[in-house]
């Protein structure tokens, strides 16, 4: 996420509300990076649910099970 959003630091509080780079383009880049990195396919509903760091962790973990 740090690489996608090109931010020098990133912690678990990161969300669409406090990260300016997490816009429409940022979301799409994040999806593609996650799919590549973790070899998963994200469904539109899951993409919509990814609004903060914890959401991303939860969804990626659920896809890997």
């Amino acid at each position: 996420m740090q690489r996608v959003f090109e931010t020098p630091s990133l912690d678990a509080s990161c969300s669409q509300n406090n990260c300016p780079q997490w816009d429409s383009m940022g979301q799409l880049n994040l999806v593609v990076e996650l799919e590549t990195e973790f070899d998963i396919n994200l469904e539109p509903e899951e993409i919509g649910d990814m609004r903060c760091f914890d959401d991303v962790v939860r969804i990626v973990k659920s896809k890997q099970q």
Partner: peptide, 9 residues
């Protein structure tokens, strides 16, 4: 309005 962000592309 309820479409996931990112699909705007």
């Amino acid at each position: 309005a309820d479409t996931p962000m990112g699909l705007g592309l």
